[in-house]
Amino acid sequence: MFRVSRSRFQVLLEDIGASEIRFYQKKKNLDVDEQASLEAKLLLPIKTLAYGVPPHTFIDYFQMSPEHVHQVDGLFGSLDCSHTIWKNCPKAWAGSYTGKPGSPSIILEAVVDYHMFFWHASYGYTGNIGDLNILAQSPLLERMVDGSFHTLENEASVVPFKIGDQEFTKCFFVTDGIYPKFSRFVKGVKEPITEEEKKYTAWQEGARKDVERAFGVLKCTWQFLDRPILKLKLSEVAMRTTCYIILHNMLTADRVMGDPRARYVPCASLVLSGSPMLPKY
């Protein structure tokens, strides 16, 4: 079903069929005998979103990297940013949106766990600003500062947790070296010397690949994000990107949980395998 599992497609089919959206309703009093089925009406936009090409194109090859559990409590996810090229950026905005890629681009900030599930996504930043400036404008930092993020941690009972003999009251994110020295941000040692520093930095760099892998999978699955964006209106681009991330999370939940109706739980696969070390979320 164009990278959507059959069980997830069936759920979408049932929910959309029960909705009152006019496009998906069977039209009455038409002179023609046949109409497009609900399945066809749903498959067409999914295929277009998946490949970013005309509906007649059909290429369906995709390989996902294996999962890796990092075996450390308190790790909420990996934080980073990714650019998408905006080919049809209005000329008046081109200067503001031209940055690292050399062409106008739009930036996505995201926090992703080891299953590649997007816990946080903030999109629409101009391509000429760096990760630090994006963080300063991010709703993620705002929730950290006003205490609402810590409130959610307490409500979810993911804190406190222990690493060795030391107790911590805040979950943390793995980031690259450009991010500030916040208590929640765990970065690698720039020039590791001792064996402990080398081992820690190797672990940190391995854990941080989660977000890079998620960006790659997201763009490979929904190729609209991996090709120069032709849409002119930023609001339409943002709505499409939001749609892709929601669909990506649905597929991730299906893969981890095995049931499209089940709520996503990051440690579910570990529970099924009987692993003694479960990351707390």
Rank of each mutant, 00 (worst) to 15 (best):
V189M: 07
V189D: 03
V189G: 01
K190A: 14
K190E: 15
E191A: 06
E191D: 08
P192A: 09
I193P: 11
I193S: 13
T194G: 15
T194N: 09
T194F: 11
T194C: 04
E195N: 14
E196V: 10
E197L: 07
K199Q: 15
T201Q: 14
T201A: 12
W203C: 09
W203Y: 11
Q204H: 15
E205H: 12
E205V: 08
A207T: 01
R208M: 02
R208Y: 01
R208F: 08
K209F: 10
K209C: 10
K209L: 12
K209P: 01
D210M: 05
V211N: 02
V211M: 08
E212Y: 08
R213Q: 13
R213E: 04
F215P: 03
F215Q: 04
G216M: 08
V217N: 01
V217D: 06
L218V: 10
L218I: 08
C220K: 12
C220N: 11
C220T: 11
C220P: 01
T221Q: 15
T221I: 13
T221D: 07
W222A: 04
W222G: 03
W222I: 04
W222Q: 03
Q223W: 04
Q223H: 12
L225W: 04
L225R: 05
D226T: 13
D226A: 15
R227H: 04
R227F: 06
P228M: 01
I229F: 03
K233Y: 03
